[in-house]
Design a protein around this nucleic acid. Sequence first.
DNA 1: CGCCAGGATTGAA
DNA 2: TTCAATCATGGC
Length: 284
Amino acid sequence: MPAKKVVLPAIDYDLAATLDSGQVFRWHCAGDIWTGVLQGRWVRLRSVPNGIQAETFKPVADWQWLQNFLQTEVDMATICQTFPQDEPMTQAVAACRGLRLLRQDPWECLASFILSSTKQIVQIRQIVRRLCEDFGDPVPVPAGEHAAFSFPAPDKIAGTTEARLRACKMGFRAPYLLAAAKTIATGGISLEALRGVSRPEARLKLMELPGVGGKIADCVLLFAYGFDTAFPVDVWIARALQQLYFSRKAATEKELHAFAASYFGPHAGYAQQYLFHYIRTKLN
DNA sequence: CGCCAGGATTGAA
DNA sequence: TTCAATCATGGC
């Protein structure tokens, strides 16, 4: 029977850490309630014992789309066992128990991370919110809730102008987003087709898009496509690797990448997320 | 190689 | 209260 409420079973799931760890930019928290929009649907989430309670505006028959986004069926204990058993990883895993990787829509993830370059998380949130208000479609919400908008599809953004995108405060990223949207809207690159190719091949394809360098490509590979070995190296991770694994001697960017690729195992992307969240929120 | 292009927020002076 | 630093892509 279709219902507006469900509890998705999950153990070791820290909803707040997961939705507030720089993977997604559109979830809003009030108390312990998280509100967002997924695939044009308004969604409210709350942690309950051994699960996550979800509520939508319209009744839903199949909750697969939400399970897939939240990745509730992933067994974190098994994944954490594959991490190197060193001091930093052990500390990070202990401190960030329940931190998860989400599985996002590729376009929303790609567009968000194009907008993320040389921006901080608070600003990325504002830009993405404006983008959705200006170009997304209103989605129905319960009475008394804030208005909510879908994430604008590639053709919607492809059909606007650089000036109107700049009005969302995205600055020099506006032409990149516009060109990327046009490439995808016209079939120059198929984001769906990337699901079926190898990680290095998908990475090269993403990097053909303007505004997408190695770091942003790695974010999309990890957060949208589920390539668990993708290892985005931002300044935080670079500093952490430098400090925790190279102590004094200065490692080049190339050495950091080589180390990351060889050291953290088959779920290196998860390890990266634990290190990232650990140094950002728990250290100092 | 070095610099710049938006700009909200943070923390130092 | 100024004011420098944060963020990491691409063009020059």
